[in-house]
């Protein structure tokens, strides 16, 4: 059941021309960033080589690119999550899911996985681009892996949050704007937080993504993302169930 919903969600994304347009534009922007980074790296490479323990290509090209992708995801994910439930509610197709032998949590999880699969595609395309570096220089595969994992967890967290906001309203646009506002607020909180402000650092997803970006796999960060995702998925399930109670 979960997979049926996920599959339908995934396929319906590709039925819209805007998805293809976004994918294309995104690929262009990423490639542009990639080349700019690579160019900058090549210019300073000779000076870097004189340093002891100099940063390699992975650290100076891949990591910054991935943190750019993280920033883009913040703006991109709300555009996709907004439709998940709000549009079904507006088009009155949600009734079909509610009347079918599927529980609320299965609907939520199905939609979550469907969109995550799509975002995985974007992340994979970005990673493939970075793997091209292997043609000219040895890569730090560990760092690349932790970046990919961090990006995936971040995307999942954003999706869960967006899904919840989508479950709250009937208007997809309202869902998109409120998700974006929330994500932007969390990002600003992380940017503005002083290094000593442990509370703000602890609650913002971007600060936890930071350690993945630096190549650190810390269990606290993974637990944080797991909690973040499950809390918002539970809230969304709860909201969907309330639909049956309050109409």
């Amino acid at each position: 059941m979960i997979l049926t919903i996920a599959h339908k969600e995934f396929r319906s994304l590709f039925a819209m021309p805007s998805t293809w347009l976004l994918l294309g534009a995104l690929q262009f922007v990423l490639a542009w960033f990639f080349f700019a980074r690579l160019d900058a790296f090549l210019q300073v490479q000779t000076q870097l080589a004189q340093l002891a323990n100099a940063p390699g290509a992975t650290q100076s090209v891949a990591a910054p690119l991935v943190s750019t992708v993280a920033l883009i995801l913040m703006m991109l994910v709300p555009v996709f999550t907004m439709r998940l439930i709000a549009e079904e509610r507006r088009n009155q197709t949600l009734v079909m899911l509610m009347a079918s032998p599927v529980c609320s949590w299965q609907i939520v999880l199905g939609k979550f996985l469907g969109l995550l699969l799509f975002l995985l595609l974007i992340i994979a395309s970005c990673m493939l681009m970075l793997l091209v570096l292997a043609l000219g220089t040895p890569l730090d595969l560990g760092l690349l892996f932790s970046n990919a994992l961090g990006l995936l967890l971040l995307a999942a967290a954003y999706t869960a949050l967006g899904l919840y906001f989508s479950a709250l309203t009937t208007q997809p646009i309202v869902a998109a704007v409120s998700t974006l506002a929330m994500l932007f607020g969390l990002w600003l909180a992380d940017m503005g937080a002083a290094d000593s402000d442990m509370l703000l650092r602890a609650i913002t997803p971007t600060s936890h993504f930071q350690s993945f970006n630096e190549g650190l796999l810390r269990s606290t960060d993974i637990i944080y993302f797991a909690l973040f995702i499950s809390i918002f998925l539970l809230l969304a399930t709860r909201r969907l169930h309330n639909n049956r109670i309050y109409g």
Binding site: A15, Q92, T93
Partner: peptide, 9 residues
Amino acid sequence: PETPPLYRD
């Protein structure tokens, strides 16, 4: 239902 639950696309 009253409005058929159709995914138009």
